[in-house]
Simulated assay, not measured.
Amino acid sequence: MTEKTGISYIKGDATAPQGEGVKVIVHICNDMGGWGTGFVLALSRRRPEPEAAYRRWHRERARNDFGLGAAQFVPLGDRLWVANVVGQRGIRTGSKGAPVRYEAIDAGLERVAVKARELGASVHMPRIGCGLAGGTWSRVEPLILERLTRCGIPVTVYDR
């Protein structure tokens, strides 16, 4: 385990967070309702609830807060939650660049911070926004530091 700037970096699987206490697994979703590649596949192999909740949230978006920057919290028992954070526009790189939307990740992390404080939880994640979304960790890490670790919320980032 290495710790840098308040974030613990470990080798492991973010779908099976380590440590004691209540945990929130954070990952990034797109704004199109698509769920089928990247980290979400590993998540769905462990538990069906996050995918089912995300698809319902997207399907009923005319009547809820679904959209860039929103976060949906799915309980997986008393001590484990998944945060579906809408932080990418679409699924492909195009004329407007990569799908990642840093401002949406920032807004979603602010919502995660509120929920983590409410639950007394630590936060666990892969390098969000840096896989298929096309983001860079040098842009995402400062958002995590500002929204989570600066507020005293323990964060663990898992590298496979």
Rank of each mutant, 00 (worst) to 15 (best):
T156W: 04
R89I: 04
A98G: 05
N64M: 11
I144K: 07
K4I: 12
L148A: 10
N84V: 03
N30C: 01
G97E: 09
G87P: 00
I25G: 00
N64Y: 06
V157L: 10
A53D: 12
I10K: 13
A70Q: 13
R101S: 04
K23T: 01
T156Q: 08
R117Q: 12
C151D: 08
H27V: 04
V140N: 09
P75N: 12
L132G: 06
A104K: 06
R55G: 00
T156G: 04
S122P: 03
R59M: 06
L145R: 15
A42N: 12
G12E: 14
V155F: 06
V123E: 12
R63H: 13
I28Q: 15
A83H: 09
A62I: 06
I10G: 04
L43R: 08
L143F: 02
G67S: 13
T37L: 14
K115Q: 14
R111N: 09
L68F: 01
R117W: 01
I105T: 02
I105D: 04
L76S: 05
K23R: 13
R117V: 03
D106L: 08
I128G: 03
S8C: 10
E51I: 01
R59S: 05
G129T: 04
L43W: 03
G12D: 13
G6N: 09
E60Q: 05
G12V: 10
A121H: 07
A62W: 08
A16V: 15
A98V: 12
W137Q: 04
Q72G: 02
I7E: 07
G120T: 10
K4T: 13
S44N: 09
R111K: 15
R101L: 02
I25V: 15
A113G: 13
Y54A: 00
Q72T: 03
T5I: 02
V100C: 05
A53T: 12
G120Q: 09
T156L: 07
P75Q: 13
I25Y: 04
G21W: 11
V22F: 02
G108E: 12
I25D: 10
S138F: 09
G97Q: 07
Q88A: 02
P142Y: 08
L43D: 10
V112N: 07
A116M: 13
R59W: 01
I128L: 14
T15D: 03
E3T: 10
G120V: 07
S8P: 04
F73I: 05
I105P: 05
D78S: 08
P142K: 13
R55L: 13
R101T: 08
I128Q: 14
M1P: 13
R61T: 01
A107F: 06
W81G: 00
